[in-house]
Simulated scan of single mutants.
Amino acid sequence: MKSFSIYEHPHHGIKAVKQGMSWPAFCFGLLWALYKTMWLLSAIWVAALVLSGLLVPLDSALDTVINGLFLGLQLGVAFKGNSWYEGVLRARGFIFRTTIEGNNPSQALGNYVSSRDASEFSLSTRQISAPDDEDDGPSNLKA
C-alpha cells in the first residue's frame, strides 16, 4: 500500500496526495502540471521549451545537453512534484488532516471518509446529554 496525505477544504472538498515519486509527473510533465493547476511550474516548463527551441538550432551539438537538462527537469518534477502540489493545496486554503494508506487516491479518500465518519459516530454516542430539568427561568411571565 501507498501513503497518501489527506487535505480538506470547506468549499473544494477533499484531496489525496501520494507521498513520494509521481510517475504521472515523470511521464506527462507539463500536462501533469497543467492538470494539477500548478501554474508557476507550467510557465517555467513552457519557457524552458521555448528558450530551448529558440537558442538551439536543429543540427546542434548542444542537443544532447538540452535533452539531458530536460531529463533532469523530468526527474526533478517526478521526485518533488507531489510535495510541490501539497504546497499549492496549502496555499489555496486546504488543511492537512492526516496521512492514510491506500492502493490509489480513491481508496485512500474512501478510507479517510469512513474512518472520519466512524470517529464522528463514536464521539456522538459518547456525549453525555444535559439534564432536562434545568431551570431556564420563569416560563409563565406575562408581557
Rank of each mutant, 00 (worst) to 15 (best):
S3A: 11
E8K: 12
H9P: 00
H12V: 02
G13E: 05
K15Q: 10
K18V: 09
K18A: 13
S22H: 00
S22F: 03
W23R: 04
F26Y: 05
L31F: 12
L31S: 09
L34F: 01
T37R: 11
T37V: 08
T37L: 05
M38F: 07
L40R: 11
L41K: 08
I44Y: 01
I44D: 04
W45C: 03
V46N: 01
P57F: 12
D59I: 03
G68L: 14
L69Y: 09
F70T: 02
L71W: 01
L73E: 14
L73Y: 12
L75C: 09
L75V: 10
V77P: 02
S83T: 09
S83R: 12
W84H: 05
W84S: 08
R90P: 00
R90K: 14
F96H: 11
T99R: 15
T99H: 11
N103L: 14
N104P: 06
N104F: 06
P105M: 14
S106H: 11
L109T: 10
L109V: 13
S114T: 09
S114K: 15
S115F: 11
D117R: 15
S119F: 12
E120A: 09
L123H: 11
S124R: 15
T125Y: 07
P131C: 05
D132Q: 13
D136C: 04
S139P: 01
N140T: 11
